[in-house]
């Protein structure tokens, strides 16, 4: 697939990012100095064992947590300078989230779950269009309780993309799904990345998922211990685990 990519803008520039929980001998060093540059429109997979720091990293990039030291630039904005309200606006305007357990609002239909977000966005898609992109056009009036796990996760993806975010963070998006369903969810993410150019970060334990990424970052003990680029991205529908 596309290897000779056109020059893209740098979406994240991360320098010496550290995160320490607690102080003194009980301190936990979740991140011990992470450096990373990410170009816009890339599909990133973060791999690593539990406690390796990948979730902490993603939380800081997603504006959910603050670094102890270092910098995380989103275009020209230094996320580490933002206060709570600033981070809220950052998440509201630029970031889409997909959670391991979907986190849909049970009292809203698929369509409403998506329009919950489009109502507070500046230039959103039509919720129906976003749901069509994840293949759920026929299920828009269903409540989460009437959808399968995979369908719920695709609603969550539609919800994340409907505001046309610059970046999407997906923390173990297939963690609660069987492989067949998981593949369909990954396919949806792949299409979003290709069709609207959203930068996508996927955290996973599952090494197979790495094959669909442009770049794969390996975390270990609070540091990036390896990074590789795939020459070709494997279509998600061909993944098996």
């Amino acid at each position: 697939m596309s290897t000779g990519r056109p020059a893209r803008r740098r979406i994240y520039h991360i320098e010496d990012l550290t995160k320490t929980y607690g102080t003194g001998p009980a301190a936990v060093h979740a991140l011990r100095g992470v450096n990373l540059d990410v170009d816009e429109g890339e599909m990133f997979v973060l791999l690593g064992p539990s406690g390796s720091g990948k979730s902490t990293f993603l939380n800081i990039l997603g504006g959910l947590d603050r670094a102890t030291s270092g910098h995380a630039h989103f275009f020209d904005t230094n996320l580490t300078d933002l206060d709570d309200d600033g981070l809220t606006e950052y998440r509201r305007e630029s970031v889409g989230f997909v959670f391991q357990f979907y986190n849909l609002i049970a009292s809203l239909t698929a369509h409403e779950n998506v329009s919950l977000i489009t109502q507070i966005s500046k230039d959103p898609m039509d919720p129906a269009e976003a749901l069509a992109m994840v293949g759920l056009k026929e299920r828009i009036k269903h409540f989460p309780s009437q959808l399968s796990g995979g369908e719920q996760q695709r609603v969550a993806i539609a919800r994340a993309i409907a505001k046309r975010p610059r970046v999407m963070f997906c923390d173990e998006p297939t963690g609660a799904l069987d492989s067949e369903t998981g593949v369909r969810v990954l396919d949806a993410l792949d299409r979003i990345n290709r069709e609207i150019g959203t930068t996508v970060f996927i955290i996973t334990h599952n090494a197979v998922v790495a094959e669909m990424a442009d770049d794969v970052v390996l975390f270990g003990d609070g540091r990036i211990v390896g990074r590789r680029s795939n020459a070709t991205r494997k279509p998600p529908l061909e993944l098996r685990w």
Binding site: F101, L104, I105, A106, S107, L108, T109, E112, N113, S115, L116, Q119, H142, F143, P144, S145, Q146, Q152, A176
Partner: peptide, 28 residues
Amino acid sequence: RPPAPADFSGRWTASAARALVPDEPSRM
């Protein structure tokens, strides 16, 4: 297991809220 989402598909529950208020937070 992660529990199934609470069921809100009761016809009355679903449509009454839709008819009464336009925005999702209010429907919630």
